[in-house]
Amino acid sequence: MGLNLKDLISIKDLDRDELRLILDTAESFKEVGARDIKKVPTLRGKTVVNLFFEPSTRTRTSFELAAKRLSADLVNIAISSSSVVKGETLLDTARNIEAMQADLIVVRHPCAGAPLLLAQKMTSAVINAGDGAHEHPTQALLDLFTIRERKKTLEGLTVVIVGDILHSRVARSAIHAFKMVGSSIRVVGPPTMIPREIAHWGVEVFYQYEEALKGADVIMILRLQLERQDGSLFPTIREYANLYGLTPRRLAMAKDDVLVMHPGPINRGIEIAPEVADGLSSAILSQATNGVAVRMAVLYLLSGVTKHEPADSQRTAH
């Protein structure tokens, strides 16, 4: 069984069974990473291109290791060394890469919608590795994988997402994913960081961290994007850390077996206290480990399908 999809742009592209298939496939790939020789021949002869228009360590490395462990050929293209600095358009860059017979293209772009545009215009499979504040689907998948691994279930869990929901692609993908698997979702943060229309997503909104934490099974912390700090979203880092930093005292308000997650990179002492980040509840490093397995699953499942012709009509914007 494969995925009946050409691309992975949004969590909303998936149904419940497809989501489960990705997680189950990732489970079998996770074992590869634990071997002495971390390689299987599954994607031998396939070409994967990492096309990153934004800085990234974790996600880019994770996709790179995933492709390499599957024996695919991998090329990394970073914005600073590409023709984009010479004024080439996104579509022209991508079409040239496709002309060199890339099978899978992993795209990160600061503009929401850029991977969807490429998916519509190209025959190669396109995987969204984060587009603006829109989505980061493989992050949500690796989060689900990590939670399922620890908690043995996803249904009925109470998940608290903390921080800048408004500007977070991680939050968007996570909210759609958690809804699909039947977790109940709380969001907490200053009102300036919560979208006005959030009721549409059917999540519970809190402004007080302590209240949101009561009975929490999972705390998912969003990185405070310091580069966004322009004085109107929140007054100072100091105040943000006071109100929305996860300290040991606050951690104690959640369930005893609560799982603390963060997509990284973490700002130690701001949104998460060092002793919490490094503590027993923290799943942050497991997330990084599992990210490789989940991306192996996504690369494998998208490489196996029959190539579709680009068909704008078959896909609508999310």
């Binding site: 603006g132 829109h134 989505e135 968007r172 979208p195 006005r196 229309e197």
Partner: peptide, 12 residues
């Protein structure tokens, strides 16, 4: 326009 659609798309 700011609303449900801009929130879904992650556009300002």
């Amino acid at each position: 326009n700011e609303g449900v659609v801009s929130m879904e798309l992650g556009l300002k």
